[in-house]
C-alpha cells in the first residue's frame, strides 16, 4: 500500500472530478452550441436546467461569457479548470510534470479561446489535451492506489453529469461498469461501498434512474465521502 495522506487522497479524487467536469461539460455544451447555430438560441437554458443552474446570464452571449469563461462564477468551466489545476499542482510528484503540463496547456488554450469567433474549433485542442492528460495518467502513474483514486473521481463525476444530462442507459451503464471495475480493485477502506446499493438497484432497471436521480446523485457523491477539498 502506498503512503497517501488524507489530503493527498482528496487532491487526487478532486482532480479526477474537476478534470472530468471540464471535459464532459464542454462535450455536452458542444451539443447545445450546435443547436443554437440555426435552431434554438435559447437551448442553453435546457443545458442550465440539467445542471440545476439558474439562468443569471441574460442571453446566449452572456451565457458563453459567464458560464464558460468567468472564473468568479463558481459554476463555470473556468472555475472547474482552476480547481483542477489547484488540485493537480500540489500532487505534481505523484502525477508527474507531464500530466500537469497537459492541464496547463488545456487551460492556456481554453483562456485564449475566449475572444475567438469560432468557439468550437478553438476549444477542440482543449479536449485533445484533456485526453492526453488521461493518457498520461494511464501510462505514467505507476502507483495503482493513486490511479484508482483519481479515476474513481473521474467516473463519479462522469456518471453524475451523465445522469443529469439524461444520457442513454447504454452509455451510463458502460461508465457504471467501469466504476464497478475500479471499486473492485480498490484497497479496503478507500470507498464507502454501502452507497453503491442504490446505484446497483437503479442500473438494473433501464431508465429507472430518471425517477430516482436525486437518490442516485446523493449516493454517488458519498462513495468517497469525507475527503472533499
Amino acid at each position: 500500500m502506498g503512503i497517501i495522506s488524507v489530503e493527498h487522497r482528496g487532491n487526487l479524487y478532486w482532480l479526477g472530478r474537476y478534470e472530468e467536469r471540464v471535459y464532459t461539460t464542454l462535450h455536452s455544451f458542444f451539443g447545445y452550441y450546435d443547436i443554437t447555430l440555426d435552431k434554438d438560441k435559447n437551448s442553453y437554458r435546457n443545458f442550465l436546467n440539467s445542471l440545476e443552474i439558474e439562468d443569471s446570464y441574460g442571453d446566449y452571449k452572456g451565457f458563453i461569457r459567464g458560464f464558460l469563461f468567468d472564473k468568479a462564477d463558481g459554476s463555470s468551466v473556468s472555475a472547474a479548470f482552476h480547481s483542477a489545476y489547484d488540485n493537480a499542482m500540489v500532487i505534481r510528484n505523484t502525477i508527474g510534470s507531464e500530466a500537469l503540463a497537459y492541464i496547463q496547456l488545456a487551460m492556456d488554450v481554453f483562456h485564449s479561446a475566449r475572444d475567438t469567433k469560432n468557439l468550437r474549433l478553438a476549444l477542440m485542442p482543449v479536449m485533445d489535451y484533456l485526453l492526453a492528460f488521461w493518457g498520461s495518467i494511464d501510462d505514467k502513474l505507476f502507483d495503482g492506489e493513486a490511479r484508482t483514486i483519481i479515476k474513481g473521481g473521474k467516473l463519479v463525476e462522469r456518471l453524475d453529469l451523465y445522469f443529469r444530462f439524461n444520457y442513454e442507459h447504454k452509455l451510463i451503464n458502460s461508465e457504471y461498469e467501469k466504476l464497478c471495475h475500479i471499486l473492485a480493485r480498490a484497497p479496503k477502506g478507500l470507498c464507502n461501498t454501502q452507497h453503491l446499493a442504490i446505484l446497483v438497484e437503479v442500473m438494473a432497471v433501464e431508465n429507472s434512474y430518471k425517477e430516482r436521480q436525486e437518490e442516485v446523485l446523493d449516493s454517488l457523491g458519498k462513495l468517497f465521502e469525507g475527503h472533499a477539498v
Binding site: 495522506s5 489530503e7 500540489v90 505534481r92 510528484n93 508527474g96 510534470s97
Partner: peptide, 13 residues
C-alpha cells in the same frame, strides 16, 4: 513539488 517528483521523496504538509 518539482524536487519531490525528481527525487522520489514524498511531498508532505
Amino acid at each position: 513539488s518539482y524536487l519531490a517528483e525528481r527525487t522520489g521523496a514524498l511531498l508532505v504538509k
